[in-house]
Design a protein around this nucleic acid. Structure first.
Lengths: 114, 114
DNA sequence: CCATTATATAATTATATGCTTATATGTCAA
DNA sequence: TTGACATATAAGCATATAATTATATAATGG
């Protein structure tokens, strides 16, 4: 048991963040694929500001990083985060969400810039 | 990867439950020791109803079980829960909380009935 | 039965959260 | 520069959450 420990306060904050179906699904998707905001808008059938606010919380906690590519901002899981090992352990218990991206591709809505 | 998967909705609910410092600490303590409400009251310096409401949420989710022993009701982690494997994976990232029970014992407040 | 101790529940309140609408910022292409 | 598209931010509102106080239930021991 030489895993790095996370302070209880911080762990609770991270779990609260992940304790929202939208954000949890976002993170699960980001496990395998980077995504931009407009893709999430399509996937979750949710307004752009709502999505923006969710990813901001994930970013503020250091769970995801952002990278601008032209008009788009792509989000990715930050594997360097102190919390990443715990997040990974959580994600492995969740069903793969790739089908959501597949649906996007079929509709021609997947962004593959650059 | 043959771990049983948890539906996203349910996983989010469990994570939200654990996304509270008090409940998260309770569960971490219960990992090693059963506890009764009055012990939690001492540990968290919190009112009895507040504690009661927290453990109720954990019980409603099936994360903990209760067993009456005389005047006391002891709570324990339910290892049979579908969520237990995920919970276990989370707990391993948290610092041991046994010192909280040690403090109780030193004050003679640990309940060891039966 | 009564008093004490432990726990649960109900009602209330303050704060947190997540969404909406409106608006601002940023990039691209004509 | 202007218009279109992508994203971010701010303000407002409705609901959820966690605490408190008051009260109810349950077990124990005189």
């Amino acid at each position: 048991m030489d895993t790095l420990k996370i302070e209880m306060d911080k762990a609770a904050l991270i779990l609260k963040l992940l304790g929202d179906k939208t954000r949890l699904t976002m993170v699960k998707i980001l496990e395998n694929h980077d995504c931009c905001v407009c893709e999430f808008v399509e996937i979750f059938k949710m307004s752009q500001p709502a999505i923006s606010q969710h990813v901001r919380k994930l970013r503020d906690a250091g769970l995801v990083g952002e990278e601008r590519k032209g008009q788009w901002v792509f989000y990715s899981l930050k594997k360097e985060s102190d919390y990443y090992p715990m997040v990974q352990d959580i994600l492995q218990h969740l069903p793969n969400q790739d089908y959501k991206l597949k649906e996007l591709e079929e509709q021609g809505l997947r962004i593959s810039c650059c």
